[in-house]
Every structure is written in C-alpha cells, then in structure tokens.
C-alpha cells in the first residue's frame, strides 16, 4: 500500500484499510475454516471414535481387532496391491505417451490435452458403467472376440481385480499425465541437443537426460495416483462386483450394515495414516531429489 488515495476524512481511510486487510490477508480464512470444519474435524472425530469401545469407554480394542483378524490384513493387502497395479499401469501407459505429447507443437498439444482432460469431466459412475458395457458376459469385447472366432465361451472379464485395475487406471491416467507432461514440457531442449551432439543415441538421450529431468513430475504423478487409489470406493465396488474388497468398502460396510462406529473409524484412521505416510515419504524423496540437484 504505497500509494493510497487522498482520504476525504479519517473514517473512510480506516474502512479502506480494513477491507484491504480483510480481502488481502484474512481472505484465506473462510476457506481454511470450511476445510477445518468439514474435513479436519470429521477426521479428528474418527480418531476419537476409534479409541472408544461399544460402551463408550477408552480402549484399544478396535485396533487390537485390526491386528488379530486375518480378514483385515487381507483387505489392506488387496487395497495396496490394486493401488500398486494401478500405479504400474499408469507408468507403463503414461510415460511413453507423455514423452511424445510433450514435444508436440502448441496447437496439437492443446488439442491432445483437451482430450486427456476430458475424462475428468465425466462422472466416475458413467465410466464404471461404460466399462461394464465393454467387459460384461454379453458385452462389447466378448461379443467381438466370439464373432471373430477367437474364443468359444465368454471370458470372465468383469467383476474381478482385472476390471477394477482397468477402471481405476482409466480414471487415474489423466491425473498421472498432468504433472508428468508439464514436467516433460519444461525440459530444456538444448540439453537434449547437447547430448546428441556429443554422440549419445536417441535412446540413450531419452533414458539418461530426458527421463531424469522429468523425474519430479513423474514422481508427483505416481504419488498422487497411489494415494488416491488407496481411498477408491466406487470403481472397486462396481467393477469388482463384490469380489474385490478394498478398505473403503469395508469401512462403509461395517458402518452401514453393522453400525460399528469404532471398527469403521479404526480402519479409517489406519487408512489415513497410510495416506499421510506415503505423502510424507514422497516429500522426503522430493527434498532429496531437489537437494541433489542443488549440490551438483
């Protein structure tokens, strides 16, 4: 506020300063408050409920049960496996695509990005339904394969882990691509030219110059996809058809079927800890990554 208008009197100036202060600095408070009350508070509430037993007394029995019962361990295992497979699919499908797209001229690039972003506008449910249309017994894929005589009986493509990972990859791929492509697009083309002029092959340049320079974006995309996959509910519930039990589904079931607040909260808290552990690890990794760059 170097150049304030000449005030007619003291009062408008004070008012002016106040609104400036409110809009300029306090402006972040309403948003923070909303997140605090409707996201943070609910999470803390879960932590509180998770350490109460059925009678309302403090106890660790909800967590003890999580450790004792093998079924819980299996659910965590499946959730992590499905998330890991989704990340792997995104990496394998996404990196070659992003490398190609990053080098496109602006006009084609804009068009491709619009197509990449399009799935983000369509509902998860619409896409789950679409995959059912493709993978079902009488669906698109089975009908085609049978018409071409490649198979005799319909393949069991839907309602299993394969369908779940496919559906989740379809949803997560754009989210992986966004940071990856933006990192790849900001790679300095001169470095690639330098590498080639010094005799490195195209592949060598790609692997030892281009990819390492895009690593921060790839890492961000990977972590984002993994963390979001851990909490997936809709896609496994529909495309897994009850055969793929992930953490979120177990939480929902123990709440709505058994109204077991303590048990569902305890699983929730462990899920939350997993999410933040992964985020924390990625933060450490990124710090090390950028630290390494600085010392070079």
């Amino acid at each position: 506020m170097v150049s304030l208008p000449a005030p007619d009197s003291r009062a408008p100036l004070a008012l002016h300063r106040l609104t400036g202060f409110v809009l300029g600095r306090i402006g972040v408070m309403p948003a923070l408050l909303t997140v605090g009350v409707f996201v943070l508070l609910p999470c803390l509430w879960l932590v509180w409920l998770s350490v109460l037993d059925r009678s309302g007394a403090l106890s660790g029995e909800n967590y003890a049960r999580l450790i004792e019962q093998a079924s819980y361990r299996r659910i965590f295992l499946i959730t992590f496996r499905v998330s890991f497979e989704t990340v792997l699919c995104c990496l394998v499908l996404g990196i070659p695509f992003a490398s190609y797209v990053a080098k496109l001229p602006p006009r084609a690039f804009g068009l491709v990005m619009a197509a990449v972003l399009f799935p983000l506008w369509t509902s998860l449910l619409v896409r789950a339904y679409a995959w059912l249309v493709i993978l079902q017994r009488n669906g698109l894929l089975n009908t085609w394969l049978q018409d071409w005589g490649l198979i005799d009986a319909p393949l069991p493509l839907a309602f299993n882990e394969f369908a779940t990972v496919l559906g989740m990859t379809h949803i997560m791929l754009p989210i992986f691509l966004l940071p990856t492509i933006s990192a790849m697009r900001s790679v300095d083309g001169n470095l690639l030219k330098a590498s080639e002029s010094m005799g490195a092959s195209g592949l060598r340049t790609y692997l030892s110059v281009f990819l390492p320079l895009s690593l921060s974006g790839i890492l961000a995309g990977t972590i984002l996809v993994f963390v979001m996959s851990l909490g997936f509910y809709v896609t496994p519930a529909i495309l897994g058809g009850g055969n793929v039990q992930v953490i979120s589904m177990r939480i929902a079931r123990s709440l709505s079927t058994y109204s077991n607040f303590g048990a569902s909260s305890a699983i929730g808290v462990v899920l939350l800890i997993c999410v933040f552990a992964v985020l924390g690890l990625s933060l450490l990794l990124r710090r090390r990554l950028s630290g390494g760059k600085e010392t070079k």
């Binding site: 972040v28 923070l32 963390v227 909490g231 509910y233 999410v275």
Partner: peptide
C-alpha cells in the same frame, strides 16, 4: 501451510470425509 491445508480434501480419502461428516 495454508495451501497444504486447502489441498487436504483432495488427498483425504472421500470415504473418511463421508463417515466423519456423517458423525459430525
């Protein structure tokens, strides 16, 4: 700090927001 808090709803699994909000 503020940016991190504002991004929380995107990283906290929605099932947790859902049941927590249900309790609240």
């Amino acid at each position: 700090l503020a940016g991190g808090v504002l991004m929380l709803p995107a990283v906290v699994p929605s099932i947790l927001v859902a049941i927590g909000l249900f309790f609240v």
